[in-house]
Design a protein around this nucleic acid. Structure first.
Length: 108
DNA sequence: TATTTGACCAAGA
DNA sequence: ATCTTGGCCAAAT
């Protein structure tokens, strides 16, 4: 079995992300902060590498200014999917932006 | 080991 | 509001 395996930064991002409740979102910055680092960019990298969209809801991770960020690469085509998934949880998106005061999860 | 690469951020112009 | 610039840091090369 796996002994002494430490969790990578990437895995820790995923763990945190799973704590975000339905109807809420988080940001790359928030995740980094919850991990006591300033590696906002590295968080983005982690999400990009996500190969399990079904178990890891990376569509809930957006930019700290409320704009959407990417989804499954930086292809804008996939962004529609992200928007749909968010709307499916009751999150409003106006002008390609999300109201953080309303939807940001602050319980990490 | 060193360099490069981003689904980012914040402050300026 | 949009664009540029410098900074950030884990992972991949």
């Amino acid at each position: 079995m796996m002994l002494m395996s430490k969790k990578s930064f990437t895995e820790r991002c995923y763990e945190l992300l799973k704590k975000v409740p339905k109807g809420k979102v988080t940001t790359y910055k928030s995740l980094a902060r919850a991990l006591n680092t300033k590696a906002y960019r590295a968080v983005g990298e982690a999400m990009k590498k996500n190969k399990h969209p079904n178990t890891i809801p990376c569509y809930k991770v957006i930019n700290s200014n409320g704009s959407l960020g990417g989804y499954m690469g930086s292809d804008p085509k996939n962004l529609k999917k992200k928007i749909q998934l968010l709307r499916a949880e009751g999150i409003e998106i106006k002008n390609n932006k999300i109201d953080l005061d309303k939807y940001l999860y602050r319980g990490l």
